[in-house]
Simulated assay, not measured.
Amino acid sequence: MSSDSQQGAKNPVLQILEDIGKDFEKCKPLVDIATKIGVPPGHIVAASFSLALLCIIFGIFSDFLTAIVGLLYPAYMSFKAIETPEDDDDKQWLTYWIVFSFLHVFDGPLSLILQFFPFYYPLKVMFYVYLFYPKTKGALFVYNSFLRKFLLQNQAKIDDYIQKTKETVENNRFTK
């Protein structure tokens, strides 16, 4: 291999870190920290994610860290999406919350068993990242491939159940 082609080919790890850095270049607090310590923002994100993943693998704050990844980050990004004039990010985050809600309903009872399987929490965190990461658009894929059809087929039943529940609540609200 010539020296020109060696210089043109980037180390894949460095390329990933550079791509991650581009994804977070508008995050002012992260850029400020990166500038102060003299490293690219992608390195801070990768190091933080790696540290969190190691903690999760070893069972240190697994539930808490999984909640941060699956709830707090998406909630903040949803806030940011609402504040932008574009609609594409709104759709991504609304879809994320639909998929997350379905997963969460089933994860509750199943996690009592699944948490004892090795790598349950790391896989769960990686799946959350897959769902919300803009380049994978995993939530849109899961929604369009599985949930959309189910919801469309059962929409009338779900609406009927919601209406009956509202009526029950309204009728029993002032009886006691």
Rank of each mutant, 00 (worst) to 15 (best):
S2V: 03
Q6T: 09
G8Q: 13
A9Y: 11
K10D: 10
N11K: 08
P12N: 10
V13K: 07
L14S: 14
L14D: 15
I16F: 13
L17A: 05
E18V: 02
K22M: 09
D23N: 11
D23K: 06
D23V: 05
K26W: 05
K28F: 09
P29N: 08
P29M: 11
V31H: 07
D32I: 12
I33P: 06
A34T: 07
T35I: 05
K36V: 08
K36Y: 10
I37Q: 08
I37K: 07
V39E: 06
P40S: 12
P40H: 10
P41D: 06
I44A: 07
V45Y: 08
S48Y: 10
S48G: 15
S48P: 00
L51W: 04
A52E: 04
L53T: 12
L53N: 01
L54A: 15
C55H: 05
C55D: 09
F58P: 03
G59H: 05
G59R: 04
I60W: 11
I60Y: 14
I60P: 03
I60R: 06
S62Y: 08
D63T: 13
L65I: 15
L65G: 04
T66G: 09
T66W: 09
A67T: 08
I68G: 03
A75Y: 12
S78I: 01
F79E: 05
K80H: 04
A81M: 03
T84S: 12
P85A: 13
D88S: 14
D89E: 14
D89K: 10
D90N: 12
K91Q: 12
K91P: 00
Q92V: 04
Q92R: 14
W93M: 14
W93V: 00
L94T: 01
L94G: 01
L94P: 01
Y96P: 01
W97I: 04
W97L: 03
V99A: 03
S101L: 15
L103T: 00
F106C: 08
D107C: 06
G108E: 05
G108K: 07
L110D: 01
L110P: 01
S111A: 15
L112G: 10
L114R: 09
L114T: 08
Q115W: 04
Q115D: 11
F117K: 04
L123R: 06
V125R: 00
F127D: 02
L131S: 01
F132D: 00
F132M: 09
P134R: 07
P134W: 02
K135G: 03
K137M: 07
G138R: 01
L140N: 11
F141N: 03
Y143G: 00
N144Y: 06
S145F: 08
S145P: 01
F146Q: 03
R148N: 12
R148Q: 14
R148P: 00
F150K: 06
L151M: 12
L152A: 08
L152R: 07
L152E: 14
L152W: 03
L152C: 08
N154W: 06
I158A: 12
D159C: 08
D160T: 12
D160Y: 07
Y161D: 02
Y161H: 00
I162R: 06
K164D: 11
T165A: 15
K166I: 12
T168K: 14
E170C: 07
N171W: 05
N171S: 14
N171T: 09
N172V: 06
F174D: 15
F174C: 06
F174V: 02
F174H: 13
